[in-house]
């Protein structure tokens, strides 16, 4: 993408931007992985490291905004360059949000304590694995300008939403069976919701990658299967 411009400094700047976004993505991905680990193992130290690591993501976000602003002003990019520059700005915003969700998840490590029985806990790594796969693949799709991979990430979002819905039901069931688990399960519910949101941001990123590479919008029929809003009355769930 960033090669062979008549002005070669522009190539270097575009490459620098891409590198920055991918590095930011690497940290966001690592933080999500670490947050899940911290929850599962109730590892307070790991949670703290994850929380403080979020700052690095924010720094990248700021640097990317500056670089993008400079490129727009100085190079007046067109076509694929314009799509790439604007797309990376959107992607950085999504990564920044993903970082925030990872931080939120890590913060629950202490609160959750030992309140949750092991059985409901299993839902989290199950969702986490899927979400991490999406984040990793969407970053790969950006790196390699791989449209098919981007589409596959978007398609997985529906499965993730279904998984979230089933986790939601499962946790409600636990809470109804044993009200002592309500506090812990509520934390897990929030964590599951955060993971589901990370999947949405990975999907946004996949759409951005698709647009950068092809210049077209990804087909509009984005699968959406989060129906928990309709089943929020617990009496209908059991």
């Amino acid at each position: 993408m960033a090669d062979n411009h008549t002005v070669s400094a522009f190539d270097q700047e575009l490459n620098a931007l891409k590198t920055k976004v991918l590095r930011m993505g690497g940290i966001a991905e690592a933080n999500v992985a670490a947050a899940i680990q911290a929850i599962v193992r109730r590892d307070k130290a790991l949670a703290d490291r994850t929380i403080s690591s979020d700052q690095r993501i924010d720094v990248f976000d700021g640097e990317i905004s500056e670089l993008v602003t400079r490129l727009l002003a100085l190079r007046q990019p067109m076509a694929v360059d314009l799509r790439f520059i604007v797309g990376t700005l959107k992607i950085a915003t999504d990564l920044e949000r993903i970082g925030d969700y990872a931080k939120n998840i890590a913060k629950r490590t202490t609160a959750i304590g030992t309140a949750v029985p092991t059985q409901p806990m299993h839902a989290i790594p199950r969702m986490g694995e899927m979400v991490l796969g999406m984040v990793k693949d969407v970053l790969d799709s950006l790196s390699a300008e791989d449209v098919e991979k981007a589409v596959a990430v978007r398609d997985r979002d529906a499965i993730l939403d279904e998984l979230y819905n089933s986790v939601f039901r499962e946790l409600l069931t636990y809470m109804m069976e044993d009200p002592r688990t309500i506090t812990g399960c509520t934390h897990l519910l929030f964590i599951a919701k955060n993971l589901e949101r990370i999947g949405d941001h990975a999907t946004n990123m996949a759409e951005a990658v698709y647009y950068i590479v092809t210049g077209k919008r990804m087909h509009a029929d984005r699968p959406k299967a989060d129906v928990t809003a309709e089943i929020s009355d617990p009496s209908q769930v059991a």
């Binding site: 062979n4 411009h5 008549t6 522009f10 067109m78 076509a79 694929v80 314009l82 799509r83 077209k216």
Partner: peptide, 19 residues
Amino acid sequence: IFTSPIDKRTQDYVTGRFG
């Protein structure tokens, strides 16, 4: 033409890739 040109020659020109 300026956001998503179809032909590679157009793309190369509008993005400043012609030598």
